[in-house]
Design a protein around this nucleic acid. Structure first.
Lengths: 152, 152
DNA sequence: CTGAATCCTTTCTGATACTG
DNA sequence: CAGTATCAGAAAGGATTCAG
């Protein structure tokens, strides 16, 4: 997702009548309601991408080198792994350590903040594990009732 | 994200050996480690998109009509709201009720499963609220140290 | 009001080739 | 090993138009 990580595009037409969330870019003041934003968007953009969670899950097991990560995450390309760890590093969730050895050796590990996030994700993982079957069933049912639909 | 909601490409090869997470592809056997997959991908694909969470958060406050949702979520286009609620409905997270009145009236509300998911998301919201400032700070620092970078 | 259908632009990913 | 640089295809998102 992301899209530059800002929702509203139109600069003018947006907030006119004024309301709780002026939505120029995102809620300017503190969280509109109980949360609404609160930076949840930044977090969702990170965990919502294709590989970040998998990388964090792997790093939750311990320090890993670039190649180790790639081998541990089937399907990820070198390019995407690089981008993913860079973004995680940028957000302060992962720390990158370069050892100036002959064959370059770079190690990645979760920062305290990164560990904090993965801890919060567990609740989500558990829920997913418990409800995935139901979700898939619902999905199949819906697809059966709506043969021709692009909503996938 | 998403990409057909399965990471590794291979299309056909669905459930062959049969197992808890037939998953389009991903981890061969059941959940590799503690989670890895377990359907977490489906969940992340849903909450990771641009609007689903905002819609669920709004619906967590009560039943809402289409226009009410759109007004409550600044920036969302009619098209995206339609797609978002449809996908949530497909996954069994939201229920759609059509009232055959003169001006069409359609109401949306979270299903028990939908409420269950939003409950799990609160942990994430709280974490985001507590760590967003730190994350943004880290981001600014990183950007300052890497003037020319596309990793955004 | 509640959508469905189009068209078009932006963003994301993956494949490939090259480098210190 | 650990990246960087390109490039092309795929997918997501937005604006607009039309309809029940």
């Amino acid at each position: 997702m992301s899209v530059g990580h800002t929702a509203v595009t139109t600069p003018g037409t947006a907030a006119e009548t004024a309301g709780p969330p002026p939505a120029g870019t995102r809620t300017p003041g503190p969280c509109a309601d109980e949360y609404d934003d609160c930076g949840i968007r930044d977090v969702l953009d990170r965990i919502g991408d294709k590989w970040s969670v998998l990388v964090m899950v792997e790093l939750a097991k311990g320090v890993r080198r670039f190649r180790e990560l790639q081998r541990a995450i089937p399907g990820i390309s070198q390019r995407m792994l690089t981008l993913t760890v860079r973004r995680l590093e940028r957000d302060g969730l992962v720390e990158r350590t370069v050892h100036a050895t002959v064959p370059p050796q770079v190690e990645y590990e979760l920062t305290p903040m990164g560990r904090g996030l993965t801890a919060q994700l567990r609740a989500l993982f558990e829920w997913a594990g418990e409800n995935h079957a139901r979700l898939v069933a619902s999905r199949r049912r819906w697809d059966a009732e709506h043969p021709d639909s692009e909503v996938h």
